[in-house]
Every structure is written in structure tokens, then in C-alpha cells.
């Protein structure tokens, strides 16, 4: 479990493209899950985390999905498992 935690989007270094390996859909509400998919965040797609938080908090996270840039919360990013690009 602890080993897996290191592979989540929430901990990913900024500016490096990674692939989404698995998303724990049960960790979020159905609406949140659907909105993630509407943003194009699905298993197998490639994302680049770019900006994280402000002086106030670690939240939120901005990342690119394809040619789109989206903002999600750290809580959702923690449910997204990632793997390095081959």
C-alpha cells in the first residue's frame, strides 16, 4: 500500500509526462469520476502535472491532458496511479 502511494499523480514531479495506469473510481463520487473522464483523464492517457498549489496550500493541481489544461484537487490526484513512459 505504501509502495503504491508513491506512484500517484499527487506525488508526481512537475513538468514530467507520465501515463495513467489506474484510477481508483471508488475514491471519488460518481460525478467527480465522470468529470475526470470528460476532461479526458482515463486509464492509458498521458498527462503532465504542471503547477501545484499556492502560498496558501498544496491544492490544487494543474495538469495538461492532450492539448487541454485542467485543474483538479489533490484528493482526486491521490486516486490516480501513474507509471513512467516507456
Amino acid at each position: 500500500m505504501t509502495a503504491l502511494l508513491e506512484n500517484v499523480l499527487d506525488r508526481a514531479p512537475l513538468g514530467v509526462m507520465v501515463r495513467i495506469a489506474r484510477i481508483d473510481w471508488t475514491a471519488m463520487s460518481e460525478d467527480e469520476g465522470r468529470r475526470l473522464r470528460e476532461f479526458g483523464l482515463m486509464e492509458g492517457c498521458e498527462v503532465t502535472p504542471l503547477h501545484r498549489g499556492s502560498i496558501f496550500s498544496r491544492d490544487p493541481l494543474a495538469l495538461t491532458v492532450g492539448r487541454m489544461k485542467v485543474i483538479i484537487r489533490a484528493r482526486q490526484a491521490a486516486a490516480i496511479e501513474i507509471e513512467p513512459l516507456a
Binding site: H51, G53, S54, I55, F56, S57, R58, D59, P60, A62, I71
Partner: peptide
């Protein structure tokens, strides 16, 4: 909104 989300999150709101 991105920049303010952290602050707004602290008081229970969102960006």
C-alpha cells in the same frame, strides 16, 4: 481561481 483555491479551500470554499 487556481491561485485563490488554496485560500478558499481553507475556509471551506473552492476556487
Amino acid at each position: 481561481a487556481f491561485l485563490m483555491d488554496g485560500l478558499m479551500g481553507k475556509v471551506g470554499l473552492s476556487g
